[in-house]
Computed example of a mutant assay.
Amino acid sequence: MRSIKIMVAIMLLGLACNAEAWAAPRKNRDYYEARGEVVWEVPGKKKVIALTFDDGPDPKDTPYILDLLKQYHAKATFFVIGNKAGKHPNLLRREMEEGHEIANHTYTHHFFNRSFTAERIHNEIAKTQEIVYSVTGHKPSLFRPPGGMFDEAVLRVAKQEGLKTIMWSWHQDTRDWSRPGVGYIVNKVLKNVRNGDIILLHDYVSGQSQTVKALQKILPELNKLGYEFVTVSDLLSSAKNMVPSMK
């Protein structure tokens, strides 16, 4: 009789554990989006999209990209690396003066992994905040982790620094950093474009960039389709303004 009771207790314990595991939130995209902690895109009725550029500023490619954006009256968001921003303050100032948004992409662009302590994560983010502020007089409000790699610790530190974590639309990962061909980059954007997209591009890549030539085709085509190019913060604001009042 005692053995039966023990078996029943074990079974009940197992069911309880399974129920707890099932009830616990799975930390995938849906989990973070529901909590408003991470943004991948901002779908809506307005034909607006956000072009984002990572890994700069770069003295070679960033000026060409800024020239193109000006030509098509496009605003963009530059996720800058702190140590590069410190070396090229004039480019940082130009981005700000021409109406673009400057966001935080860490100081050294090391991928966050389990070896990173909270202090090291904080230093990567805080140093870039300080550099951007010292050059422009404004602190970034947005953050993108290198390689899109984050966990609870990264999000917690970003939030402590007053930063919103921004990813990109999965259907708009152009992989321009790998130089897949101008045609690939162009087709990736144009064939998948949707209202509220956050498009991932780079104003620095290792080797000969294909991003500038791709933009020469992407910008006029999206212009013809009636899309407006806005900063990520403007994209987020437009979504808030579209929420109907509960009064």
Rank of each mutant, 00 (worst) to 15 (best):
N192M: 05
T165K: 08
V157C: 02
D173L: 05
Y184P: 00
I218L: 03
K139D: 04
E221A: 14
R194E: 13
E161V: 09
T165M: 12
V205S: 02
V154H: 13
H138T: 13
G183L: 06
K217M: 07
V193A: 02
G147S: 07
R175K: 12
S209W: 07
L155T: 11
G147F: 02
K188S: 14
E221I: 00
Q216E: 15
S209Q: 08
E221G: 01
G183F: 04
G196Q: 01
R194M: 07
D173W: 02
P220F: 05
S209H: 09
R175Y: 13
A158K: 06
K164W: 01
P145D: 10
K188R: 15
P140I: 14
F150L: 13
A214W: 02
T136D: 06
G181H: 08
S206Q: 10
W170Y: 14
G207N: 06
Y184K: 13
V212C: 03
Y133I: 02
G183M: 08
M167P: 07
L155R: 10
W177L: 09
Q208A: 13
V205F: 00
G181Q: 06
K139C: 12
P220D: 04
E221Q: 09
F143H: 07
Y204M: 08
K139A: 15
K164H: 07
R175A: 07
R194A: 09
D151L: 12
P180D: 10
